[in-house]
Design a protein around this nucleic acid. Structure first.
Length: 417
RNA sequence: GGCGGGUUGCCCGAGCGGCCAAUGGGAGGGGACUGUAAAUCCCCCGGCUCUGCCUUCGAAGGUUCAAAUCCUUCACCCGCCA
């Protein structure tokens, strides 16, 4: 039987790069270790869509990240608690994370029915400022009121509620409840949101401490504070400083998440501000980032773990990664292409099936199309970050990065050139 | 043999004198997706020398300023009656 202190959370840095913030380390949790930098695939509702846990393990996933808001609505935190926690419930043999529901403040709030583009040029500020009557989430200083996207019922989240839910879900690493904003909220609004996030961070620490003491029979859960501040240097650094030094109820954050508005072009700069301000010896998780080129930027700016739905989401609509870039395997040129998706890939899909077969499955709307494409994309991303870790250990990260980016071209139809 | 219904762009299917190159679906072609309201969403989809022109709504002929829409004949399909 676990006791709160017998397998406590820890983070050990094994090697730091000389000319960047990049480092190699190990995060230890009650359910196992994570060698960092690492990509953590997302299984929002306690499953990576279309892929079984065993397959996720086989493709090299070290941990999975689920979502407190979604699991709260269905099946409910009590079910997860009775099941013995998230990992046991979904039969995942390793560490787990849960997001707090902070992202849903945005995605169901002002971001409702909007494309929350990472590219500042494709996101119009009036889309945010104009407001939106249909939105399902409304924020105030104390918390957020959600209208369930499943049945329309009303729900109230606060720092305390999010902690209570995440404690019942029982992931090894949980996140503080924050307000996620977009690239185009006004500066005064970003300041307001950041103040709330700061306020909620203290309340999360307090509630987390209380719940940890009450449930002393359960494995220790690590709490990560979330850094907001949008694109503003002073706000990001202030948030990083404040949360980095924050202590309440006698505890501090075990690690940090970097969230919110992150324009692709300034991703590295912003993450660099944050990570050079936060305490060096604690793990940093970059929330929601996972495009290949962005992962390099994150790693060299001190990010230890990433999570992102992109790999699995694009897989379900037939986009697949290769070392040369991504392409749509359901397109006409692949009907009779009997090569693997990527001949350099070692995944289950690439070692057993052809592009033509995947193309056929997608066109026939067969469910395994999503499974096979997701396995491939998740493997591609997990492996890419694994290769970054190895390159850092070998001292040739920059060469590895140059070589990859030199070959990898995201053949996007827009926003290029 | 008689009566009735039908034949529309790759497929299904609206339209029933002008606002019709012709509504919708599907298929097909392409794109997007970054703490998952997402097996979703968006765009294109007769041709061209493309703010206009040409050829299309079973075939041929006719009425009309104007026909996918009305009339005649023919071909094929589907019902019901003999």
């Amino acid at each position: 039987m676990s006791t709160p202190n017998d397998k406590k959370f820890s983070f050990e840095i094994k090697k730091s790069a000389e000319n960047s913030l990049a480092r190699v380390g190990t995060i230890s949790t009650p359910h196992g270790d994570i060698q960092t930098p690492a990509f953590i695939p997302v299984g929002t509702k306690a499953t990576v869509k279309s892929v079984l846990p065993g397959a996720m393990k086989d493709l090299g996933s070290q941990a999975l990240l689920a979502n407190a808001y979604h699991l709260y609505l269905q099946p409910g935190p009590d079910v997860l608690d009775e099941a013995g926690g998230l990992a046991k419930f979904m039969n995942w043999p390793g560490p787990t994370f849960t997001d707090s529901g902070g992202f849903q403040v945005l995605s169901l709030g002002v971001g409702f029915k909007k494309v929350l583009a990472m590219d500042a040029k494709t996101f119009r500020s009036d889309q945010v400022i104009a407001g939106n009557k249909e939105r399902l989430a409304h924020v105030d200083d104390d918390g957020v009121t959600f209208k369930s996207h499943l049945d329309g019922s009303m729900h109230r989240f606060s720092a305390e509620v999010s902690m209570q839910i995440q404690h019942k879900i029982g992931a090894d690493i949980i996140f503080a409840f924050d307000e996620c904003t977009t690239l185009h909220n006004t500066r005064p609004y970003q300041e307001l949101a950041m103040e709330r996030t700061y306020d909620w961070a203290i309340r999360c620490l307090d509630e987390h401490k209380r719940l940890t003491d009450v449930r002393s029979d359960k494995p220790y859960q690590a709490l990560f504070g979330v850094i907001q501040g949008a694109q503003y240097e002073d706000l990001r650094k202030k948030a990083a400083h404040d949360l980095g030094t924050m202590s309440s109820s006698g505890i501090e954050f075990d690690g940090f998440g970097i969230g919110g508005a992150l324009d692709k072009g300034s991703l590295g700069t912003i993450v660099g501000w944050v990570n050079s301000t936060l305490p060096e010896n604690k793990p940093k998780h970059l929330l929601g980032i996972g495009a290949p080129e962005d992962l390099f930027v994150g790693v060299e700016n001190g990010v230890d773990t990433f999570d992102c739905v992109l790999a699995s989401r694009i897989a379900r609509s037939s986009a697949v990664y290769t070392m040369q870039g991504r392409f749509n395997v359901a397109n006409a040129p692949y009907v009779r292409d009997f090569n693997p998706i990527d001949d350099e890939c070692d995944c289950f899909t690439c070692t057993n099936f052809t592009r033509a077969y995947l193309c056929h499955l997608f066109r026939g709307k067969e469910m395994v199309a999503a499974t096979l494409a997701t396995i491939h994309n998740e493997r591609f991303i997990v492996r890419l970050v694994d290769q970054m870790r190895q390159a850092l250990l070998d001292g040739n990260f920059m060469d590895m990065k140059e070589e990859f980016l030199g070959r990898y071209k995201h053949r996007s139809g827009q926003s290029r050139d």
